[in-house]
């Protein structure tokens, strides 16, 4: 008789355990759904965690208004297929309401502005726990993140004032107005995520597979042609065979030149990769401590 499980099954079981803890300890959780692979894996875990019952919380998408159309189509099809409830928080609406201000310069990224929309929407929906797909392997600042990450009344993260997490015991107690971000994939690496998607045959957007697309190279990042990305003087669109390793705001998600057109190809490519997924993110390059600063303000 086999008396142990592989690392992937252990991670899955841990993720399910976390989701059930949240459903039991909180009143109004939401799952932050970005359309990227990590949030797709979260949805998959949520279905497993509560099956045969439906997922007992809604999905929340913070829409920067700069999405790839493929992402939105995928999102809507998924929500329909699994019968989930979807809420959308619009960055454009925050800008229109004067709550957020578009960054100056050409092709502004709205990654930073998302924070405002996110916090406003969480408040509006009275959310007390929001699942995020963050992984500790992504970035140094995330390495200390808890599974249950406490946020104060202003949605802020205080790295010095996080509760210790021992064994498998998670403390979701809080005062009025405070909430938690919960990261069920904390212990997963990018490779685990891909292996899991392959093993479970989870559907992901076509953007992750190689295809021909017009792109422009800017500051070492390949940006896709879209209505939100316009050419600067001296630039030109070039058609290349590319795919995306992460999917986010179209103004700052970089593509990778790749021929990986199947899950197997992707896994081999990830195994051989020499840069992090975030290496393709335009905004992370700004400063070494960029991520940490954004986290303190309540970023995902």
């Amino acid at each position: 008789m086999k008396t142990w499980r592989s690392s992937l099954r252990q991670l899955e079981s841990e993720g399910i355990y976390i989701m059930r803890e949240v459903a039991a300890q909180f009143e109004r959780p939401v799952l932050l759904f970005s359309g990227g692979k990590d949030s797709i894996v979260m949805v998959h875990l949520a279905r497993k965690a509560f099956w045969p019952a439906p997922i007992p919380f809604p999905l929340l998408h913070i829409d920067t208004g700069h999405n790839f159309p493929e992402t939105l189509a995928f999102r809507d099809a998924l929500v329909e297929r699994i019968g989930a409830t979807l809420h959308v928080g619009s960055v454009q609406a925050s800008i229109d309401a004067g709550r957020a201000k578009e960054e100056p310069g050409p092709n502004p990224s709205r990654n930073r502005l998302q924070t405002v929309t996110l916090l406003d929407t969480l408040k509006e929906l009275n959310v007390d726990a929001a699942f995020g797909g963050g992984r500790r392997d992504e970035e140094k600042a995330r390495a200390k993140e808890r599974f249950f990450s406490h946020r104060d009344r202003f949605g802020q993260w205080d790295p010095k004032n996080q509760r210790p997490e021992l064994w498998n015991i998670f403390n979701g107690r809080k005062s009025l107005g405070e909430h938690f971000r919960v990261f069920p994939l904390s212990n997963w690496t990018e490779m685990d995520v891909w292996q899991y998607i392959a093993a479970e045959e989870i559907e992901i957007p076509d953007l992750y597979f190689s295809h021909r697309r017009e792109v422009v190279e800017r500051d070492g990042v390949l940006l896709a042609k879209s209505e939100y990305n316009t050419l600067l003087p001296g630039e030109a669109w070039v058609e290349k065979t590319i795919r995306f390793r992460t999917i986010g705001d179209a103004t700052c998600t970089g593509a990778t030149e790749s021929n990986a057109s199947s899950m197997d190809d992707i896994i081999v490519e990830v195994a051989a990769a020499r840069t992090t997924e975030r290496g393709g993110r335009h905004d992370d390059k700004h400063s070494e401590a960029a991520m940490e600063d954004r986290k303190k303000q309540g970023y995902f």
Partner: peptide, 10 residues
């Protein structure tokens, strides 16, 4: 690669 796992194993 950087995942520490040979492609053949991955």
């Amino acid at each position: 690669g950087a995942a520490g796992i040979p492609a053949s194993v991955a």
